[in-house]
Nucleic acid binder design. Structure first.
Lengths: 386, 386
DNA sequence: ATTCAATTCTTGACGAAGTTAATTACTGAT
DNA sequence: ATCAGTAATTAACTTCGTCAAGAATTGAAT
């Protein structure tokens, strides 16, 4: 267990500002937070003493002017390391990150089964392997973040229900802590990625934004008033089940017209097959290739999917009014994104209500390692938030 | 100007808990908030001294037991009064409320024009009339809340854009303050109603909930993590422009398939007309009568509208995961609600994703005075929140 | 009746956190 | 060199809330 450094509100504020807003002078921190500069000095001191923060050298200082030059506070990223692991149904993806949640090494480990004990055992080995890659990791890594799809109770480290893994009420934090000796946080995978964007990515500085993930399914993480929207019953961000398709396609969720039933990987391939394109037994890869080769029937299917995604994003923006929308995807979705993009933009703009269309759309490809990074970001945020 | 009593976090917490959670003992407040009971005693004292809070008499106390009986703190609702006014394009609706935002008197005033100066002048007369109804109002009323549809900048008391009123960049708080001598807050009407539910209605105790208003249009207010979702570009809660209707109906917003283009009052009447039902030139009233009389064509139109509303509510719930959904409406919507209700419930349940269907649906008819009450609630919340 | 245990509320000393105001530190310009 | 301007630090003070002890008020046991 790492002793908690952020004991007071001011300490939390100051440290997270330096962590997320890059090097900042004390006066600047005081201005932005409303604290007195004296308070900033005091709050920063313990972090400097313990090596989490440092003052930048004179050479690294910014624009000069009249008066004493500022000595901006900067994070020491290698003061502490974190491990983030994304757990899928057939693989563990793990990364070691620094304090800024920057991935340093990554490692994959296939899963033969999703049986809990077996996954935890594999996880322990993955973690041990990652820690062994550098001696400093063993010394200065105390926290592990896990990202799992489904309904996660972060406060209790409990996976309430994960359909993909077939887990119910699994006390994953406790099990993983016992197996690895680290402090463990568990979070829903989309929310974890959202936290990574909020603190270390394109959500920095926005009090509200949305993250839309396009891939096998379509997911969404929301931040409002600076906090992740949790969802009262374990459900939130299910943008994939907004019914924009009319009565037509039936969805695995029992609903009709869901975005995911149009633009999810499986329905998309099915639509290509129904169109008789991309070969005898089309797969996502052959469909992709056919679309890139210019097959109009296949391209129409992708355009329809993009339309559905754009409408759902507009619905979300109309309801929620985010400052920005970050669009990202896992590996398959990522490869197809160029096929969606134009139609997403067009349909979003057409359906966004009034000023909601002013919302900035940011396209950000993210690899699977980024999901693991999200898990690490949650561990970091948990450690440094009161 | 009323001097601010809630200067410290503890004072705010204690007072708002008594205000919103009814009579509570100090120990109970301490338990729920995590404060020490000593802190509660200290925080409560100034409110008692100034007459905002009182200790309940022995006779009013709750269940006895061993030990010193609790003396619960209760609000003194008549210590301070508030005026709330809802501004529509053809009418001002005003109420005087007590500290609990309970309406005591109401008054309407027709508007010949929506020209700003004229509206402000009418407003001043309305307020003067309301204050004259009881001498204590004049003594103990210092704040006025205004509710306006459209994009409102509450922090600056500015109506950025209100399509219904044809207003742009109107510094309404300043103008109304000058005309009435009261401290004025301005808020979007749906958000105001949401605040009323959050503090004094069916949102009490919920850290997240949604309010859906069915009427001429369909609106929505959202509360997440205990705070109203504002929307970055002045847009939020536009549930009426979620495209659940496919490509079919074109909406006045420029989009297609919007809920409001199906279930709004005008499109609904148009659909009845297209069906050739409810008389030569059907109005909302004749359509309503025909539906209540059992005309199947008209009932089908209402069912279709209910379906659209239910789907939009499910989309919202899937995305947002509210603990509860409060469904309400203005006068016309209210009269028709029984025709929507069954279909709303059915379509919501069908489309809600997994546990999102567990969300409690509360049907709460609200009169126009309730909207005015919402404005008063915002004034109250603003006064007693740090 | 009296004592005791239980629970609520109050009080005053203390401690932690942050503010203000004065001081020191450092720079470029006159 | 002096000076004006900005940054950071320091020390005294304020404020808020905790803690621990005690006062208040009841029901139950002796």
């Amino acid at each position: 267990m790492l002793p908690r450094l952020t004991t007071t509100p001011a300490a939390t504020t100051v440290f997270t500002m330096v962590l997320t807003q890059g090097p900042v002078s004390r006066v600047e921190i005081a201005k932005r937070t409303g604290l007195s500069s004296a308070a900033v000095t005091k709050a920063a001191r313990p972090f400097i003493e313990k090596g989490y923060l440092q003052e930048l050298e004179a050479t690294e200082r910014t624009a000069p002017g009249a008066g004493r030059p500022a000595s901006p506070l900067a994070i020491r990223p290698d003061r502490e390391f974190f491990i983030g692991v994304k757990i899928t149904d057939d693989e563990l993806i793990g990364v070691v990150t620094d304090l800024r949640a920057q991935p340093l090494v990554s490692s994959h480990r296939p899963l033969a089964t999703t049986e809990v004990d077996s996954v935890v055992a594999e996880l322990a080995e993955l973690v041990a392997g990652l820690l062994a890659t550098d001696p400093s990791y063993g010394e200065r890594c105390h926290a592990l973040g896990l990202a799992v799809s489904g309904d996660v109770d972060k406060a209790h480290g409990l996976v309430r229900y994960s359909p993909f893994l077939g887990w119910r009420q699994v006390p994953l934090a406790r099990l993983a802590a016992a197996a690895t000796g680290l402090t463990v946080t568990v979070e829903n995978d989309v929310k974890a990625l959202t936290v990574a964007e909020q603190w270390f990515g394109d959500g920095v500085g926005a009090s509200s934004f949305a993250l839309v993930t396009v891939g096998m399914g379509i997911g969404c993480g929301l931040v409002a008033n600076g906090r992740v929207v949790a969802g009262a019953h374990g459900v939130a961000g299910e943008i994939g089940h907004i019914p924009v398709g009319g009565d037509e396609p039936e969805c695995h969720c029992g609903g009709r017209g869901c975005v995911e039933a149009i633009a999810g990987t499986a329905p998309l391939v099915a639509a290509v097959r129904a169109a008789g394109a991309a070969g005898e037994e089309p797969t996502f890869e052959t469909a992709l290739a056919a679309a890139h080769a210019g097959d109009p029937a296949v391209r129409a299917v992708f355009a329809r999917a993009g339309h559905a995604i754009g409408l759902a994003m507009a619905a979300m923006a109309n309801l929620f009014g985010p400052e920005r929308i970050i669009v990202t995807g896992d590996v398959p979705g990522l490869a197809a994104y160029d096929l969606f993009e134009e139609q997403i933009n067009r349909s979003f703009t057409a359906q966004a209500f009034g000023a909601a269309a002013d919302c900035r759309l940011l396209l950000r490809p993210r690899t699977f390692e980024q999901w693991a990074r999200g898990a690490a970001a949650v561990a970091i945020q948990t450690l440094f938030t009161l």
